[in-house]
Computed example of a mutant assay.
Amino acid sequence: MQKRRIKDRIFWLGAVDWDRRLFDSLIPLPDGTSYNAYLIEGSEKTVLLDTVDPPMADELMAQLEGVARIDYIISHHAEQDHSGTIPRVLEKYPEARLVSTPKAKELLSDLLQISDASFKTVEDGETLSLGDKTLKFMHTPWVHWPETMVTYLEEDRILFSCDFLGSHIATNELFVTDECRVYEAAKRYFAEIMMPFRSMIQKNLEKLAPLDIEMIAPSHGQIYSRPAFIMDAYHDWVSGAPKNMVVLPYVSMHESTRRMAEHLTAALSEQGVKVELFNLAIADIGKLAMTLVDAGTIVVGTPTVLAGPHPYAAYATFLANALKPRAKLLSIIGSYSWGGKTVEVLAGMIPNLKVEVLDPVLCKGLPTPATFKALDEMAVTIARKHKDLGFA
């Protein structure tokens, strides 16, 4: 794909990765992704903002054919899907200075072995003139690494946000045209990598609030010509209240835990509580992460395996602890045969979650009428607490 014009002397460069289905050997990519770089031609200086993942380097280098000079390369984020092709760009344009935060300089030096002589570090709020265009750099740590920053192009009112506010989507459309599709992709993206840093993201959103932003150009996904769309979504995800919803990831070996999970789902439905049920043996973990953004309560369903929780249930619990969702309640349901420490093990895996732990419901073997009664009581308790907490 050739470089594409965004506005006068401002271009999209990069690569669309239609086939990628896994990121960092961990994150599912059902819609592929893109690696966006941007070229700005000022009256005096030319700048390249970010690069692409190294496997896509040839595509970026082909787009740079005919670009006689680059004075600055901006590195918003040191992770290799954005920075990995910087050495090749510097090889082509050895006179270019690599602009980053001081913290990013440390990381880039380690990750890419770039010499100190290539760097120009910038402080928070510092500006750089390209002649008739001015770049303002704003440090935005923990979106989602400690060294990240964004760039605001003052005259054209464009925010280049790198991973912040992005989404994983492969498409030939440069700008967002289907907000429903992008909302889901951006929410998945937020859930998988941004949610653990909600408090820092809220501070960074407040920091950006005074800017007059006409367009947001992230380094994954499409460009937002209506910035309020993604900014409002982020405000809700980081500072809104949890929803009247239970996320119930479960795994079952001999049907007992499945019967309990399905009964609890029905009981919660009768109480007016939405449920998102995930069979962990086949679930899309990214979809599970998305639902955790809104969850008021998490209930983990697991059989006991070798005196502890099933590994899939342990993984889901570990994931929830790492992502730090806003949920306020948590409990465990499941079946065992002769005993074990499932509850103790799972309870010890959630130090990051600020939740009230409700009494678990466990049964020996198949669930009995008493088991189902206890699940009904759990549903009533959850519904009442959601109401008391004001979850809508």
Rank of each mutant, 00 (worst) to 15 (best):
M194W: 11
N204H: 00
E44A: 10
G84L: 02
L362S: 12
S256I: 00
L153E: 08
G308W: 04
M1P: 09
R259K: 13
P28L: 06
K187R: 14
D8F: 05
M1G: 14
A295I: 02
A267M: 05
I86K: 00
V357E: 11
I86T: 03
P351F: 06
L90I: 11
D376C: 08
T134K: 13
L128C: 06
F164N: 03
L375Y: 11
V361P: 05
W142H: 10
A62I: 08
A266V: 03
V275P: 09
E344V: 08
E377A: 14
D19C: 05
G339H: 03
M215W: 04
C363D: 06
F11M: 11
L108C: 06
G125C: 01
L211W: 10
G84A: 04
P351D: 12
I193Y: 07
M200Q: 14
T121S: 09
T51G: 07
S269D: 15
E276H: 09
T171L: 11
A185T: 00
K103I: 13
I230G: 02
N172R: 12
P28A: 09
S225Q: 01
M290S: 14
A68S: 10
G308L: 05
D17G: 04
D71I: 00
F190E: 02
I333C: 14
Y224P: 00
K7R: 15
R4W: 08
D212Q: 12
H386E: 01
I230N: 01
T257M: 02
M194C: 13
V182D: 12
V246A: 09
P196F: 00
M231N: 04
R198V: 05
K364R: 15
F164V: 02
T342G: 09
